[in-house]
């Protein structure tokens, strides 16, 4: 990073990295959304074809993918709420860093809960 960036409030710090994370997770979620509408559309074509595609979501490798996807969704959701606070709450810009650490804290707790539940269901061998 260039020396000119030292002393700026935003570049290379929490504000910038949360922005990068928001973009990356947003694109990932959008791409999955396109696929997800297409796979769900199979319910209108053939019930067993739909079940066959859904069965691929149940294998362990895909379960890890789903867990990663939910990790992205949770970050995007909580950081999105932070963004709204930064834009609309009077003290938002002042506390944007603290808010990011709050986002990360909530994210860790909720993600851990989801991952334990989803992975134990997916690997549980029903």
């Amino acid at each position: 990073m260039s020396k000119t960036s030292s002393g700026t409030l935003y570049r290379g710090r929490e504000g910038m990295w949360s922005w990068v994370g928001h973009r990356v997770t947003g694109v990932v979620i959008f791409l999955f959304l396109l696929v997800h509408v297409l796979d769900t559309a199979l319910v209108r074509v053939d019930a067993s074809a739909y079940d066959a595609v859904i069965a691929t979501y149940k294998n362990p490798l895909m379960a890890l993918g789903e867990t990663a996807l939910v990790a992205a969704i949770l970050f995007h959701a909580f950081n999105g709420l932070r963004l709204i606070l930064v834009d609309f709450w009077k003290q938002g810009t002042k506390y944007q860093r603290q808010l990011l650490w709050g986002v990360i804290g909530v994210w860790v707790v909720v993600f851990a809960g989801f991952a334990i539940r989803h992975l134990s269901l997916a690997f549980g061998g029903h």
Partner: peptide, 13 residues
């Protein structure tokens, strides 16, 4: 869809 009942195992037509 993923957290209640048997979660992903219950998904089907």
């Amino acid at each position: 869809n993923l957290l209640t009942g048997t979660g992903i195992n219950a998904l089907s037509f």
